[in-house]
Design a protein around this nucleic acid. Structure first.
Lengths: 245, 245
DNA sequence: TCCAGTAAGGTGGTATGACCTTTTAGCATG
DNA sequence: CATGCTAAAAGGTCATACCACCTTACTGGA
């Protein structure tokens, strides 16, 4: 069975309607603010039942293309805003503390593993790059600053040093979620609370463990580092949202 | 007019249902791959009509949380499926040995982390479940058999015991990639080569470490176990495809 | 004993039609 | 001309029925 034959798709009726309406909007036949025909009319035009049309409209509404008002009609929304985010992002973006905690924890698992693998396989050039980044951190720390970007790149470089494409991909996905939500805020938090010196030490220890090709120690140090991050994040979330069951 | 009065929002029934189901997924009450109650059952539970439930499911399907199969049922999708699996699916399907090796390695990182967390948080019921599964393994091993399904469920149960929804989803995604390619074949390989006794020991040690709530030991034992799996996989791939660039 | 073919029940998919609430717009009244 | 009422029309909900498909278990044969 060399070929995958075909991804047979018994296309659902409502899916077909969704595509049609989406095309109409894309072509400009339906303009923003405009009212589309009523569900009954659409059903008649398309020769399908009203529930089918309704399901299609519900989907388009969920995707942000349409907006329905009872008694009013269904209208085309301006598509400047909306972007149908993927499930993961929509879960995390709710700022649900438990979800953020889960995210941090997964990241901890992946990054400690990255550190472990990196210590086994890092090439000299990669270690040199880490050292560069560390020196930038040190310099900035001298003037009391902390750049989340440099921090992120440091971690990213470590993962890259695993030479595992998948690991890089997975962690990048997680990292993106993290970054878009809190990374920056957390950076400010560090600065204000005077954790910079401690963070600097952590990164130096991680760097040294990797440079020494000592997987276990690298894992251990990364663990210590991220445990601190997790604690501070919990503290931060608690302050911002004291209302938790 | 100091008070803006109130932006009265007539809450749609289906929207309410969407929120409820989304929360169930976020809480981990609905796990990836799991089948949710039928539309008729849900309608009965919630005290609403089937069309309302259907609309909610359609929306969740459009958002990527669910997947419906006619005649089959409606299933929970991995939150990370889109962001992680989809881009990689084509790569893994090629049976590219390097990619499989990378996959195994990522899995190793995640599963050792699961074992660590599970040892910290596993509840008695979960430990009991693991024990059950182990006993089934033991029994089957007596007659010289090895069921990849039981094996997979054992590992899945451990991850579930982390009580980290995200970890469950991420690992499910990885596991799916794995399973669709080799899991079964690997099972036959074990049987033929007489590794069953060793595998049984591994699982018992992991189980005991988790039951004793000893995170470090659980991690260590899981690591040993998966290291063996990795070795055998490499051996297997080498035999089947001696042609490697 | 095992396996294949088949039959039945359950599932989602679609269709019909009815009734409700809300909105809208036209109309009648002051 | 303005106001308030009313009726038509829109979406929202519900009940029901039937269809297509998958799953399962049973039964028959090898």
């Amino acid at each position: 069975m060399p070929p995958v034959f075909k991804p047979i798709r018994p296309k659902k009726l409502s899916e077909e309607i969704v595509t049609q309406i989406k095309n109409l909007i894309a072509n400009g036949d339906l303009k923003p603010g405009e009212r589309i025909p009523s569900e009954r009319e659409l059903a008649a035009f398309l020769g399908v039942s009203r529930p089918s049309v309704r399901e299609a409209i519900m989907v388009l509404e969920a995707m942000g293309f349409l907006e329905s008002r009872q008694g009013g009609g269904t209208f085309v929304r301006s598509l400047t805003e909306r972007s149908i985010a993927d499930p993961l992002a929509s879960m995390v973006e709710r700022r649900d503390p438990r979800m953020l905690q889960a995210l941090t924890e997964v990241r901890m698992g992946l990054e400690t593993w990255s550190a472990y693998l990196a210590a086994k396989r890092a090439e000299d050039s990669e270690i040199a790059r880490l050292r560069e980044l560390y020196e930038v951190m040190e310099e900035q720390a001298g003037s009391g600053g902390w750049d989340p970007k440099i921090d992120a790149e440091f971690h990213l470089t470590i993962t890259a040093a695993t030479h595992n494409t998948l690991q890089v991909h997975v962690l990048d996905t997680i990292q993106t979620l993290f970054q878009t939500t809190i990374m920056v805020t957390l950076g400010e938090f560090y600065t204000k609370e005077g954790y910079i010196e401690l963070l600097l030490n952590h990164h130096r220890e991680i760097l040294e463990a990797i440079a020494a090709h000592d997987p276990e120690r690298a894992r251990q140090k990364m663990m210590e580092h991220l445990t601190l991050v997790e604690e501070k994040l919990a503290l931060f979330l608690q302050r911002e949202r004291p209302d938790t069951a």
